[in-house]
Design a protein around this nucleic acid. Structure first.
Lengths: 189, 189
DNA sequence: GACGCTTGTCAACAGGCGTTGACAAAGCCA
DNA sequence: TGGCTTTGTCAACGCCTGTTGACAAGCGTC
């Protein structure tokens, strides 16, 4: 990520690099755990530059969240296949499931009061909302909340297992097979 | 909570008061957001005293987590009624559902790397474990993980809604009614 | 009453944080 | 070449944090 030699003078590229690094950091660690100097080191830049480009740490956080796009990545593919596909990703390919970087950031920030406040507004707008629209049919609002809750909950469960669910591989398959129809039932209505 | 006048000299009572305050704080805010001085103020004591009684903030955190007991509160009552009962509590009485204070603390700490590390060991031991034992029948491990994940996920979803699910009261009933059979199916096997 | 142990307070420290303003270097234009 | 703007670095500031050691006050005991 960090290349040797002096960084070429290119404000736009540097700004983008900072935003990318911030997105990764905030998705992997809590708001409080991420330091400006950490992000700066990732990019190979002085921390002071970030303040100048983005104003404050809060502003950078919001910018990083905004740069994640909405939850549309989750909604690609066949609806009939959703349950099995997403269950598989949650259990076996969490990194792939993290195409919802925004979800990871939200998850990481529920602890910090300040971060949670910043997340809440954009959460409904860019996550619950699109999901709700995508889920046509009765009780779309409720189903969207349940769906989002379950998906995030499994991430929590994984995290508390120490990065895995801390169970046998054979059990993982069973987990996927039990999870899939539950998710699917929320899709189907 | 804080009574006027000088605190009576009683080491045991003071120690307990500190532990209680810490448990409440760590369940309501992230590890990083909770300051020693905050807890001290809750109790009406100097922050230095906490260090002397508990060693370090980390030690206090672990002690607070240990003081939460296991997840047995969740498992009281009829199994046949579990889904409906817990779904109701999650949606309408989150404070009551927080008889699992330990779960709240775990939830608050998934952000902070240090806190998460401290939580992980006791998590399996005092939460996943008892739940798994209680759920007899096939795939108890997997069902316990799913159950715990779903319950925590709904807490996250609530939190991201700003303390409520941010939906209409009528929708809340629908949410409960959809959530209940899902939880119950994981209980029944 | 004087001692000694316990209980609690106070001031201060070292370390980390986000942020700022002054300064250096690079590129552009005349 | 000389100036000017842009891009980036550096040192430092003020603030907040957990923790420590010295000190004060309460309480039982000789």
């Amino acid at each position: 990520m960090l290349c040797p030699g002096p960084r070429p003078r290119n404000a736009a590229a540097t700004r983008t690099a900072i935003l990318d690094a911030a997105r990764e950091r905030f998705a992997a660690e809590s708001y409080d755990d991420v330091g400006m100097r950490d992000i700066a080191r990732d990019v190979g830049v002085d921390a002071a530059l970030i303040s100048r480009y983005f104003g404050s740490k809060d502003d950078l956080f919001v910018a990083a969240l905004d740069s994640c796009g909405d939850g549309s990545a989750l909604m690609q593919g066949e609806k009939a296949d959703f349950g099995r596909r997403v269950a598989h990703e949650i259990v076996f390919e969490p990194k792939k499931a993290e195409k919802l970087k925004g979800m990871s950031i939200m998850l990481r920030s529920i602890g910090s009061a300040k971060a949670a406040e910043m997340v809440q507004s954009s959460c409904t707008q860019r996550f619950f909302g699109p999901l709700e629209d995508w889920l046509s049919g009765p009780d779309a609002t409720v189903r969207a909340r349940l769906l989002a809750g379950f998906i995030m909950g499994m991430s929590v469960s994984r995290e508390l297992g120490g990065g895995t669910f801390n169970i046998q591989p054979a059990e993982c398959e069973k987990m996927r097979d039990r999870l899939a129809p539950i998710l699917q039932s929320l899709i189907d209505g």
